[in-house]
Design a protein around this nucleic acid. Structure first.
Lengths: 316, 316
DNA sequence: CCATTAATACTCATTATGAGTATATATGTA
DNA sequence: TACATATATACTCATAATGAGTATTAATGG
């Protein structure tokens, strides 16, 4: 049934995320270009893919992973650098893992980096990122014009509008992967030329590139986390045992990339029973001291889909 | 980097779904026990996993797949029947595919079957399925009692409550996989004993079993479709070019397994701009003739997340 | 003392949702 | 023909959820 021509090897990659100082950090291995921690799956040693991942991530990064979620399995030829003849084809399984901030990583050549370094157009917390109007919109317009059929041009135009919220359409913070794939197809990220998809003479190189298809995996991870957060209390995997409501809000904002309405956020989070006051006060604030809250685990037993639905603030 | 001990072979399985006569049918291959169409991924012939899937599904079932979505990659040892020594370990990638009803399948040993045959507890359209009160609740109670620690017993109790909507909790039609996994762990499905997870002398064998981990893949497919339908117009992949609003509603109900409030469903679907009237009337109804509608493709360019959010009917 | 910063408590309009009622238009049959 | 039955479609109405504030309180640093 399974002859030799069918064998592949499986690579496991993890987007390991922590939020520190209001930045959504991802663990990066510096090996030439930036890479996600990754390693081969050993079918003899490990019963499941996830246990394989946990093991070598532990060995390689000295991190104990808490929350782990499988994202997607990528098998595209041409988006992985292993050349034909160098052994079996690699199929990569991407994972999202959450952890609390740890300070400097203990493993060599490993650092925490804000994911907005790789996706500068995704951070709308202070303002609409300038790169959108300055570089993305004109480049996508050129991509539209370069289409060899009117229907294709229109389709490209529609994609651009929906992905980047043009012509008054709303910005959808969950469309991270759609945006990256559009930029990839339009030849606006370095990986696109590297994979031979577009000529190497393009001028626009948006965001920091990553090794193999790791930026695509990271885009998938961000999108999944932004969505999941709204109906599962996963943010608390990133928080310390007690925190102020503003700290919680800043964490949600760091991930979603948008600012929220403070009073409504508080109402939401309390009415849903996601947190409970500890009675203690935070000492480290500037204004009026805030109460420290903790995650109410019981919410998992009460509500079918408890999460931090976003209550965005009007754009000022 | 990738030595021989790391090679595996990849199996692709597809839950191919069509709705006919108000039944959510899935394409089944009869080969001993019921199986999903599956085949090995050939890394030499195919550029992507999805193109590999489309090719051999086309060859094996004579179906042209329209909508295809990757579900999950399972690598568990012990949930796949291939024994050690029989070649490389198989990692299976599950897919969901949607198609319009085709009548009898053309491929040999292939039939359409309602998915509720495998998940009888998931069909709440006429009433709460009797199997829940008759078999599931008592068996899960026994499973709770059999726990060797009070904390474990309580955790099992909570899972049962949340999964099956006990003690007045709401039924969440999306928790299909959670329910199946709970029944699997509790030894209440045939696969559990087959995999050696539970003693073979258990009396309860809920639903029709499937080969390998195919029932788990199907559970994942149902859950994904039930969720996705609410924010993406995927139902229309299952509908003919024109249809009455009741036909559309019956399709949504077949998938979700719950009855909807007719007037509110109509309001939702029209206000969202998901459909538009064709001006023609349906001839095949019993009561007052209904207008025929068609899917408004433009909705994809207008709304960020158009879908059929469920407006459930009060349980009578 | 007061400007600044943040926390927390309320208010209010608008929209979305759930559950109907009312009426219209077919078919089949007494 | 009249009416029972089955749908389709149009409206209504109360309640809940959401978005956008205003108002008040409590700290710190000159």
């Amino acid at each position: 049934m399974t002859s030799d021509r069918h064998v592949v090897s499986i690579g496991l990659s993890a987007a390991i995320v922590a939020v520190a100082d209001e930045n959504p950090d991802v663990l990066i291995v510096k090996s030439g270009s930036d890479a996600l921690p990754f390693g081969p799956f050993d079918p003899i040693a490990h019963r499941t893919l996830e246990s394989g991942l946990r093991t070598w991530v532990g060995e390689q990064t000295y991190l104990e992973l808490g929350y782990v979620e499988q994202l997607y399995t990528f098998g595209d030829r041409g988006r992985h650098t292993f050349k034909p003849g160098e052994g079996p084809r690699v199929v990569s399984v991407g994972y999202l893992a959450l952890t609390r901030p740890t300070g400097e990583p203990k493993a060599p050549d490993t650092i925490w980096r804000s994911w907005y370094r790789y996706f500068p157009w995704e951070d709308w917390r202070t303002a609409r990122p300038a790169v959108i109007a300055d570089a993305i919109v004109p480049a996508l317009q050129a991509f539209e014009t370069a289409a060899d059929a009117p229907a294709l041009a229109e389709a490209r135009r529609d994609r651009a509008r929906l992905c980047f919220g043009l012509d008054g359409l709303a910005w959808d913070e969950e469309k991270v992967l759609e945006r990256y794939e559009l930029l990839y197809e339009a030849g606006l990220v370095a990986e696109s030329a590297r994979d031979g998809r577009t000529p190497a003479d393009h001028a626009v190189r948006l965001g920091e590139p990553m090794m193999f298809d790791h930026r695509r995996i990271l885009a998938t991870a961000i999108a999944r986390l932004r969505g999941k957060m709204k109906y599962r209390p996963v943010v608390f995997e990133l928080m310390p045992a007690s925190f102020t409501l503003l700290e919680l809000q800043r964490t949600v904002e760091a991930i979603s990339g948008v600012r929220l309405h403070k009073q409504n956020f508080r109402r939401l989070v309390e009415d849903q029973g996601l947190v409970e006051g500890t009675g203690k006060m935070s000492a480290l604030t500037r204004g009026r001291p805030a109460e420290l809250f903790r995650f109410r685990r019981e919410v998992l037993r009460e509500r079918p889909a408890p999460g931090v639905r976003l209550a965005p603030r009007r754009v000022v």
